[in-house]
């Protein structure tokens, strides 16, 4: 029942590891396969879990996670509460740009059980990126996968000179009017 830490293992060469957390298995698999299908210059390892904490067994087999992606199905309250519970098992250092929330199904307002504003607030309080995605459209999943790959590449330190923390602070400062 240990918390997940970003820096307690050695990184792999030219590879990034990603953890997908979410209650909907189909969503996780859809996203993971879309990410694996994309052409990329580095190796990506995707692990999936329904919720955190991860079981203690097999801990030694897991890579160092460069990024944790929480999938929130907006059509289910359970999905949100699971994510909320899981967040507590994550080390603080992850929130320096290595966490991303993906809200799924926000377009069909009729079926939404979770308010979009709630998710926005969640992402804001955790200083993390929030993506919206529709998983019933193949195109959108592919586009989301592409975005996540770009992000994980930076989180894994594969882009020289840029770190996840830098991106986060850039996002926050981008809307201030003073020039760089």
């Amino acid at each position: 029942m240990a918390t997940l830490r970003p820096f307690d293992k050695m990184p792999m060469l030219n590879a990034a590891a990603l953890l997908l957390v979410g209650t909907e298995e189909s969503h996780r698999e859809q996203l993971a396969s879309a990410m694996l299908k994309e052409p990329k210059t580095f190796e990506v390892k995707i692990h999936m879990a329904q919720s955190l904490p991860l079981p203690y067994e097999r801990e030694h087999l897991r890579p160092r996670f460069d990024m944790v992606v929480f999938l929130i199905n907006l059509h289910s309250q359970f999905s949100l509460s699971t994510v909320l519970a899981s967040l507590t098992h994550l080390d603080v250092n992850f929130f320096l740009g290595k966490v991303c929330f993906v809200a799924i199904g926000g377009g069909q307002v009729k079926h939404c059980m979770v308010d979009i504003a709630t998710v926005k607030k969640l992402a804001d309080t955790h200083l993390s990126t929030l993506l919206f995605s529709e998983f019933d459209s193949e195109d959108d999943v592919t586009c989301t996968a592409r975005r996540l790959l770009q992000m994980v590449q930076i989180c894994a330190g594969l882009v020289p000179g840029i770190s996840a923390l830098y991106l986060g602070s850039f996002m926050n400062s981008t809307l201030q009017t003073d020039q760089f």
């Binding site: 990126t129 996540l148 770009q150 996002m171 981008t174 009017t177």
Partner: peptide
């Protein structure tokens, strides 16, 4: 006005820009 543009255009666009090819 810029204040509107910031919230409605710049912010989402910047997010997208960061995570794009």
């Amino acid at each position: 006005p810029s204040s509107e543009m910031e919230e409605l255009l710049y912010k989402p666009l910047a997010q997208l820009f960061i995570s794009s090819s």
